[in-house]
Design a protein around this nucleic acid. Structure first.
Lengths: 233, 233
DNA sequence: CAGATTAATATGTATATACTTAATATTATT
DNA sequence: AATAATATTAAGTATATACATATTAATCTG
């Protein structure tokens, strides 16, 4: 009997997954080290490393130097959501995208906004409110504050032909950000814009992006009723 | 002048990020190939490969064989959400976790459930309804259907000391699944269990997990009002 | 025996080399 | 000029080797 050959890191990964699912390596179990697995699989340690490292990134394995590799006892599933520009989302559904600028003004933001963006309380920012449409129907309502200190060029942009969403991606790079998903009842204003009943449960995304230590923009996107954000595990 | 040395894939990645953020390599731009970058950075091609491959995984670069590597014109931000067992979420907030079983019965599910799980319409499943508590306050309401064909041992488990959530992770492995986030208005039943007003906007997670071609469980988790799911970009 | 030192170990990473694969560009053929 | 065959290119991957680093285990020392 010759030992099986696993020639690619993907095939090694599949075999490791099989053993985990088959409970040959039960949750919490310490699995053989890379060198031994490489020997067993008939491949190099680098190949085993790539396979195991990738699985660790998904949360299914837990690795520590010297301590070895364990099957996660309670795998923390990592769901990766793709946050693209809204136009792309709509077009991916095979619908026609359109957007309408509802408000555009330069003003001092509420303290909650200036505090979150860590800007001086009396500094004016650019405020935008826009409605995104899919096949002519309201899809999402966007409320946005843009720091004019960080993105002064925004002052000169009208945002009627291009959404702030896309304009910022092109003109204001960010290094990091945070994002939160939640649910709110539609306010009268939301209901009016989205064409739904006041109080309807709406899915919302709040995002705050930074360029190094400067807050670039803070945006809340309120989706029309029934919106789902989905992904695979 | 000696050329700068980038000895680790992380430092190469940082330099590449710097160039992207500084617009030295603007969105859509074709960047030099791996061999040239390796030469420039004074490291091996494998090191450059690791740096660029990792950036491509985050959506900031777009790579194709022969075509080369481009800075993404419209970077699709990948937000990774950690979906752990609810107990862990609650404990991570520094709160005391508890749960209460509200219902447990073996019955034929609604057609919507059996259809989603691709099981025969008249097959009975185990239905569980449980309330998760944080510091004694309602945190989330769980509605779950478990396939007894796939997980027969579930019949013998009472789920009063361990939540179905955790029990399944330990006893019913899954190969893949899909997950959806959305918002609903609280029904009377939800409101009663969660101690909120009927109609309140609630954040929900719907999850369906599979073991190869068999649906293992379908669950809806309805969170108490105000719940946020957050992550970084 | 507590605490510090040292050794051992598994993962993490860098490198040179070689080959594979997908996509494109070029050339030959009809 | 359209089509097919061929060459070229850049990323993708495998391998052996070497060394780094975090962590644990063993040993020494007061």
């Amino acid at each position: 009997m010759t030992k099986p050959q696993f020639r690619s890191w993907q095939s090694v990964q599949e075999e490791v997954l099989r053993r985990i699912h088959a409970r040959e390596w039960p949750p919490g179990d310490l699995i053989p080290n890379e060198a031994d697995l490489a020997e067993e699989f008939g491949c190099s340690r680098a190949t085993v490393n790539r396979a195991l490292r990738t699985l660790a990134e998904t949360g299914l394995l837990y690795r520590r130097r010297k301590a070895g590799t364990r099957v996660a006892a309670q795998p923390v599933a990592k769901a990766t959501l793709d946050i693209s520009v809204i136009r792309m989302d709509v077009e991916a559904r095979g619908q026609r995208y359109d957007h309408r600028l509802i408000a555009r003004k330069t003003t001092v933001p509420p303290t909650a906004v200036s505090a979150a963006m860590q800007s001086a309380p009396e500094t004016a920012m650019l405020y935008l409110k826009a409605l995104h449409l899919a096949d002519g129907q309201p899809y999402a309502l966007e409320d946005r504050w843009i720091s004019l200190d960080v993105v002064p060029e925004a002052s000169n942009e009208r945002f009627d032909t291009i959404s702030s969403n896309e304009w910022l991606l092109k003109h204001a790079p960010y290094t990091h950000g945070d994002i939160a998903f939640s649910a709110v009842n539609a306010t009268d204003v939301d209901a009016q814009a989205l064409g739904c009943a006041t109080g309807a449960a709406l899915f919302i995304i709040d995002r705050l992006t930074w360029n190094r230590s400067d807050a670039v923009t803070k945006v809340r996107i309120v989706f029309a009723p029934g919106h789902q954000m989905r992904t695979v595990l």
